[in-house]
Amino acid sequence: MKLEFLGHDERYIVEQSLMTLFPLEKPTYDAVQPEDEAWCRLAAEETAADCQVTAELHYHGYTAAWTFASPLTGTDFEKEGQRRYAVAACFYLAFLDLYPKLPEALRAAEKLTLPPWGMLTGVRPDKPITRALMEGKTPEEAKRELKARYFVPEERAALALETGAVGYQALKRLEKRDIDLYVGIPFCPTRCAYCSFVSQSVERSFSLVEPYVKALIAEIRAGGEMVRKNHLRPRTFYMGGGTPGILTPDQMDAILTALEESFDLSACPEITVEIGRPDTITAEKLAVLKSHGVTRV
């Protein structure tokens, strides 16, 4: 899909939305031409008070348009986020205007569906909920904000509230010298359409996995020494990615062994390893996780 921006250059957020709304489209950037089959022109104008965005969306002979305004307040950094939100919301609402106009055959061919999480992208739909609770909002206010601001349906908003509330309670129980440990494995079999993380497909970077694991183990041991020296206490451990399931059983065993030898995990009620891709898990890998006391997959 050709993307033409006027008055802004919010490529990242629009590309994330594009992957969700039009999964088969790749972004290109140039002025729209009459013969183009798929394009969106997003224009933004700012005043001292707000950012006004207009979207013109054209898809295989069908068109939609939308206008959206978002207040601009606070610091330059806060205004940057408000501008980004306005552009993403306008693009999403133009898609909602377009969607019912499209024939079912075209929707099926292009894999177009109504996003179950509204305009949210990425992998943490509970994040806005947790942030709202931290700001002092009630659970009902936090859920209402998620529905109104990000157009999340009631059922998914309730699920995000349930998850976000648990995260908020976990955050509140942390004491001054408590920490959470995260180990990242930035490799995947292939890149998922929804992914907004920095990651590499193993098919393109397989030779990097083993040296990465060796460097990671060295960093785990150095991190453990730093934690002991500063009298910090690990409260949770999470290995994510990418997807750690891409590791071999021996690599997984080596990383978890280094973790156990470097950190005192006795105060951790939860030790989690993410297996985001079912096609990466085997009985042998599950046995390794079990042998290291992993409590959640």
Rank of each mutant, 00 (worst) to 15 (best):
A108G: 09
T75M: 01
E80T: 13
E110G: 01
A86W: 02
T73Q: 14
A105L: 14
K111C: 14
Y85E: 11
F77C: 02
A86H: 05
R107T: 10
L98D: 06
F91C: 12
D76I: 03
L72Q: 09
G118Y: 03
A105Y: 02
T75W: 00
P103E: 04
L112S: 14
C90L: 06
L102D: 00
A109S: 15
A86T: 07
C90A: 13
P115S: 09
P116S: 12
L93V: 09
R107C: 15
L112F: 13
R84L: 07
T75R: 00
A108F: 02
F77W: 06
P116G: 02
A88W: 03
F95G: 11
R84C: 12
D76E: 14
L112H: 12
P116C: 02
E78T: 02
T73L: 11
E78S: 02
W117F: 10
T113G: 02
P103A: 07
A89P: 05
F77N: 10
L106S: 12
T113Y: 01
D97I: 03
G118R: 04
D97P: 03
E78Q: 13
L93H: 13
E80D: 14
A88M: 09
A86N: 07
M119K: 05
G74T: 00
E110L: 00
L106W: 03
P71K: 10
Y99A: 11
L106I: 15
L98R: 08
A109N: 11
G74D: 00
L102T: 01
L112D: 14
K79N: 01
E78C: 00
L114Y: 06
P103G: 10
L114R: 14
W117H: 08
A108H: 12
V87K: 03
D97T: 12
A108N: 13
R107V: 05
P71D: 13
R83D: 08
E78H: 00
D97L: 01
E80C: 05
Y99K: 06
R83I: 08
L114D: 11
L98F: 07
K111W: 03
P116M: 02
E110S: 09
C90P: 12
A88F: 04
A105Q: 15
A89D: 13
L93N: 14
V87Y: 04
P100L: 10
E78M: 01
L93P: 08
K111I: 11
A86L: 07
K111H: 15
L106C: 13
V87A: 05
L106Y: 05
T113R: 04
L93T: 08
C90W: 03
L98V: 10
F91M: 14
A108L: 13
T75V: 06
F77Y: 11
P71N: 12
Y99T: 09
K111P: 01
Q82P: 06
L112W: 12
L72H: 05
R107N: 09
A105V: 15
R107F: 01
Y99V: 08
L102Y: 00
T113S: 11
L114H: 09
A86K: 02
A89E: 15
P115K: 08
L112T: 13
M119W: 01
L96V: 06
P116Q: 10
L72D: 09
Y92E: 03
L112C: 13
A109G: 05
K111G: 05
R83G: 10
R84H: 08
E80I: 02
L96Q: 15
K111R: 15
A94G: 12
A89G: 06
G81R: 11
L106E: 14
A89N: 12
E80L: 08
